[in-house]
Design a protein around this nucleic acid. Sequence first.
RNA 1: GCACCCGUAGUUCAACGGAUAGAAUAGAGGAUUGCGGAUCCUUUGGUCCAAGUUCGAUUCUUGGCGGGUGCACCA
Length: 623
Amino acid sequence: MPSQDKNVTEHLQLLISKALNEIDGVAGFPVHLEHPSDSANGDYSTNIAMTSFAAAKKADPNFQFQTPRLWAEHIVSTILKIKNQQNDEIISEVKVAGSGFINLTLSSSFLLNSLKRINEQKTQDIHNFQKGKKIIVEFTDPNPFKEFHIGHLYSNSVGETICRLLATTGAQVKRVCYQGDVGMHVAKSIWGIRQKLQQEKITLQHISERSTSERVKFLGQAYALGATAYEQDQNAQKEIKAMNFMCFRSAQDQLVEREGWVPQINYAQFLQDVEISYQEVKEIYNTGRRWSLEYFETMYHRLGMKFDDYYFESLTAEFGVKIVQEYLQKGVFKESQDAVIFPGSEYGLHDRVFINSLGLPTYECKELGLAPEKYHRFPYDESIIITGKEIDEYFKVLIIALKEIYPDLGNKTRHFSHGMVRLPEGKMSSRTGKVLTAEWLMDEAKQRVMNIFTENGTQLSEDEIDATAEKIGMAAIKYALLKSNLGADISFSFNESLSFQGNSGPYLQYTYARCRSVLAKAGEYFPDLATAEFEREELEVMRQLYQFSEVVEKAAREFAPHRLCTYLFNLAQAYNALYNAHSILGDTVEPVKRLLRLELTAATARIIQQGLDLLGIQTVEKM
RNA sequence: GCACCCGUAGUUCAACGGAUAGAAUAGAGGAUUGCGGAUCCUUUGGUCCAAGUUCGAUUCUUGGCGGGUGCACCA
């Protein structure tokens, strides 16, 4: 007897393969199984008869089957023969349908067994096909001194889910965040801070005493001030450029002090006739940077995740410059118009600047320094980088360059991108100040939940309301971000994304809470499932339940969290339909049915909880 | 102009080359003297266009049309 339901799909594939081996001309033919969209066509379906028809006809001169359908009948009879030989009780029916599909229906004993199994285990087993594999995943990547906006929230939600999916397949996952703590955006902020301190006649110390979000608000205003001045005031522009060099230098100084690093760039040359005090800029820089990073931590905490390590551009800049200079000598890079470029056009892509004409590293150069540094700290088997899709083109060039320099690291690196967060009002911009911050969105979602509590009533006590509203609001946001395919843009209209009806995070939480409520009312019971005739709604729930581990594995393999969302929603729908059609605890319900339905309720709750957890979403017992 | 991504109900999204293209939402109509009505049921409505490959194309190829993003010293 084969293992019951460790992996049904593989078991069925094996069964069909055995049958094919007994038929001339199709031995070893790949068997493809799928779940028919209409359950009237069974639980599994294979198109093997259609795909192998031509080959079988060619291989056998005495081929006697006129159509794929007749050919399918022949395969089915062989499958049934094997099934009887090995006393297979997993499938109850195998038959031909349509133009030659072979449909397989799972037996009720199999379905009952998998139901039982789900409820016996605290967490469901997922095939650990990546056991021991070390995977480093970079995501979110907000820039210190700037807003943590909803694009970062999107990247964070996607990244965290990917990490959880990879971990559940056995991988050892390292979550890392890479942050742009140097560059013009930082210099603009510093200029703005200095200006504001002078205007408002206050010191950094005064701001330090304010709350984290107050400080961040201050930084945001400072950036806006600096950005505007940069465009309108030539003198300010000159000062900002100087401050930029000072920031780089400050980071370099630290590296020199800490590990005796040999400076790669002489920043002093850019600072000869500058009147601004390096010490002053350095202090503003270090303080503002710290405020920002502290603020980001509060965001990660609220999002329910934690990074294992952080990388900064100030560091990778130095590393990158060293690498580029070394490989310029070796001919990987070229000089062009006083800059150092990677000739991507020779690889069918486009050229990119790695060191600009002033001798400063660009983002590309820094990223090149990042790869070996990541490997140095965590010798990975695979490196995943998740970003918005606006840098797709650039990443293609970067990975080619990486492969030229460190073939091993280059081959281990994969870039995944998600779409843009589109708003009805147009694209987000930090310059026009029309940024939607993650914090604002999370507060807004929470407030909407509070409003629903007020309107519809709630079963929660006063002191539970706040924490629960937070969980439901977060569920609404994360689910809205994760439920569709990663490639396309997300349209973020509030009424759609924060709707708590239909295909939403709160719908799943509601279903979970409903299940828990039923189980609490049922009190203690002893599962003793007996095979009986199933109602249609009961059958539909069971047909969803056994697929959980399969769906999770697929979502992990394909980096497609939306598959898990779709699955959980289908399960919840099937359960709610059962709930509405049949009584569970009513007096007239037969004991056998009561037990079955309670087991279905318990399993649904478990699967929803585990599934939502993989999406980084918490369940609530009451709402 | 060139490159990449994307065109599916009014809207937001599914569909590993498979069967009658599924959901949600909006619209219309309904359901509880019961376990949570943030639920459920019924109904209206769709593959941008044209060729090609295939037993079979929303999916693959080519060409249009439409949208997004990017195209050297920002990240």
